[in-house]
Write a protein that binds this DNA or RNA. Structure first.
Lengths: 169, 169
DNA sequence: AGACATAGGTTGCAAAATGCAACTTAAAAT
DNA sequence: ATTTTAAGTTGCATTTTGCAACCTATGTCT
């Protein structure tokens, strides 16, 4: 995977692709959300190759998406824990699972997200405006941020015309 | 990538990993959201290898995430368009971009999402309960759905204890 | 009509990533 | 003292990616 043309820029979707756009990473994070903390448990639950798991965990730790600590009581044991950053990914995970359940699993998904206290199903996540109103795809646009380079700004200008049509689809 | 142990089940996160958990796929979808429709434009904008692009587009078409149609006016031209399914992915894309901007790009992201009409920044997406109240990670639990197999149910039972601690963590 | 250009691929080959099994090292249990 | 356990690493076969060149059908130019 070279990908360096696009991915060195600070386009957030490009950056996030370096992480979850690799096999297994998202599943490793899911396992962490389910409470898995140990190397051997990740391996067993996922069936991932140990060397690949090793690489993934290292990267996630590097990116501060997992914290790696040795147990005090048993110094063989290493614990991988979610961080503030990875916990903050939950809305995206929920959104992905909901979307996948609807469009990839034919509505028959084996897992669902519920409110812990009440057990009620969690409604689909949505994009909302500042006023809380739910926005549709056609109401949303991508725009260059303050740190966009000239190339990216040009990129968005080229896209501007087509986008409304596409997203309105 | 074998991954078949986990991924044959209809766990939605596992399924979605087959799609966006591969290099380039998410970026291809982003390009489509930006209005890119043609093979050569995907290649040029992303710098992706043509053979890989070819494979990715085929898979996305297979999954009904892109529609492939030949232009009537110029029969050389093929158009790849977003479908209802891929348009429905927008909240996730926005969430990923927001999360990445915050945690991977150090708050200095080159792109942002805005309301098309007003130009106002879109607030972070959130998980909400049925009543619209914003939920934190610790308020949310994964549970087996109606189509979960016994293995998965056992999996969740094993996870149940650890989860509250982790997610609250 | 003939020559050239363009769009959307495919093919072949080198480099990188993955899958699998066996091996290693440090600490704990017996 | 020996065995077991946790967390890796190593070596090797297979698969995927990156890159450049080639191919085919259609459209454009003269």
């Amino acid at each position: 995977m070279t990908q360096n043309n696009v991915f060195k820029c600070n386009c957030p979707l490009a950056r996030v692709t370096e992480v979850i756009g690799e096999p297994w990473t998202l599943m490793v994070l899911r396992e962490a959300f389910l409470g898995t903390r140990h190397f051997n448990d990740f391996e067993r639950e996922l069936g991932i190759a140990r060397n690949v798991l090793s690489v993934r965990l290292k990267k996630l730790v590097d990116l501060d998406l997992l914290e790696r600590l040795r147990s005090e009581s048993d110094k063989r044991v290493v614990e991988y824990r979610l961080t503030a950053a990875s916990r903050d990914l939950l809305p995206v995970l929920v959104g992905l699972a909901q979307w996948s359940g609807k469009w990839l699993c034919d509505g028959r998904s084996a897992t669902r997200f519920i409110e812990r206290e009440t057990g009620r199903e969690i409604p689909p996540i949505a994009v909302r405006g500042i006023d809380g109103r739910e926005l549709r795809a056609r109401d949303v646009a991508m725009a260059p941020g303050p740190d966009a380079d000239p190339d990216l700004i040009a990129r968005f200008e080229r896209a501007a015309g087509a986008a409304s049509e596409v997203q309105g689809g």
